[in-house]
């Protein structure tokens, strides 16, 4: 690890101190509250909903990017983690708001509980599955996602908590606003960013570049892979919980294979490994898919998913590294002068 730490120091010569950045992000989150009020007052319901959904998509895409893009573990079960979060949060919220809890406080608690349970699911999936590599891992995660779907689809209730089997769960109190979604998006992006560009982040990247070489360099590959899975699953669970509290109704079909693929498409199009690229892809694709919804009025057929699929294929054929490749939009990459010794810590 000392070597890694040193490499990181060379990379980060004079940089804005961490506390200043933290303060900035906190201010940004707080600023979202008045912005939310402004949006609520001035935008129509549809645009407001689209903006909120964009933020939730950013959470999903960024959390998957940690697993797929930064650590290079191809996971096809992200919708499963999302489902765990959505159902945990949804059923608890419905039950406890029904007995008179304050919806806001309950939602805050249960969104996090949902995230934590999804993280546990990530751990359960991760520990055995991550002994596998490449396409075998993809299939195993797909299998887990499918198991989660079948279990949810076949379960009516657990104790007093309703799951609702195939019909889905409705009557979840509407709590999620743009403020909630934007906060979740900012926290996710900042967390993943700080993780990816830290000394530990180099270990994630090393596993992506060459797992065998990384293990030979003394990196505990299983530990890092499971860590990526657990953190990614946590944020997916949070996004799921917020989705439930936004739509007020969830059903098992929402969290199937297709959903996982949609999230994978965001990561792949944005550029696997580029955090800003994936955020950009989440925004652009959401706007595109809404625009295509309007197109349906002209063509009378739903072309949305066809365009999605074609986009995915064409990107792979023409630009397999995605929009941004592994580059970031804002990251200042100072030219390192390797002839000079690194400044002492």
């Amino acid at each position: 690890m000392p070597l890694l730490a040193k490499a990181n120091q060379i990379d980060s010569v004079p940089r804005t101190p961490a506390w200043m950045l933290n303060l900035f992000w906190l201010a940004l989150i707080l600023a979202c509250y008045p912005i939310n009020r402004l949006l609520e007052a001035n935008l129509n319901d549809y645009l407001y909903l689209v903006l909120t959904r964009i933020c939730l998509n950013i959470v999903l895409a960024t959390s998957l990017n940690l697993i797929n893009g930064i650590t290079g573990q191809f996971s096809l079960g992200h919708a499963g983690f999302m489902a765990v979060g959505a159902y945990t949060c949804g059923t608890f919220l419905q039950h406890y708001v029904g007995v008179g809890w304050n919806p806001i406080a309950a939602a805050l608690l249960f969104v996090i509980v949902g995230g934590l349970l999804a993280a546990v699911a990530g751990l359960i999936v991760g520990v055995p599955a991550l002994r596998l590599r490449g396409d075998y891992l993809a299939i195993a995660t797909l299998g887990f996602g499918e198991i989660i779907y079948i279990v949810i689809r076949s379960t009516e209730s657990i104790g007093p908590f309703k799951i609702g089997s195939a019909a889905g769960l409705d009557g979840i109190p509407k709590v999620t606003t743009f403020f909630w979604a934007a906060t979740a998006a900012i926290i996710t992006v900042v967390c993943v960013w700080r993780l990816a560009y830290s000394a530990k982040g180099k270990a994630f990247a090393a596993i992506r570049e060459d797992e065998v070489a990384a293990a030979a360099m003394g990196i505990n590959t299983t530990f890092y892979k499971v860590t990526a899975f657990v953190i990614g699953a946590f944020f997916a669970g949070v996004a799921g919980g917020l989705y439930g509290a936004l739509d007020q109704t969830i059903d098992p079909e929402q969290f199937r294979f297709t959903r996982s693929i949609e999230i994978v498409a965001l990561v792949v199009l944005g550029g696997t490994g580029s955090i800003t690229g994936v955020v950009l892809a989440a925004i652009v694709l959401m706007i595109l898919s809404e625009a295509l919804r309007d197109l349906k009025g002209v063509t009378h057929v739903d072309l949305r998913l066809i365009v999605y699929a074609l986009l995915l294929i064409i990107t792979m054929l023409l630009r397999p590294q995605g929009l941004m490749g592994a580059k970031e939009i804002f990251r200042s990459r100072r030219k390192r002068n390797l002839s000079q010794p690194a400044p002492a810590a």
């Binding site: 191809f74 490449g134 396409d135 993809a138 297709t258 693929i261 994978v264 792949v268 998913l305 066809i306 999605y308 699929a309 074609l310 995915l312 294929i313 792979m316 054929l317 397999p320």
Partner: peptide, 14 residues
């Protein structure tokens, strides 16, 4: 291989 795998998923979705 991952690139081809994603293409395969794209074809299936299409």
């Amino acid at each position: 291989r991952l690139v081809i795998l994603i293409t395969a998923i794209g074809v299936s979705l299409l």
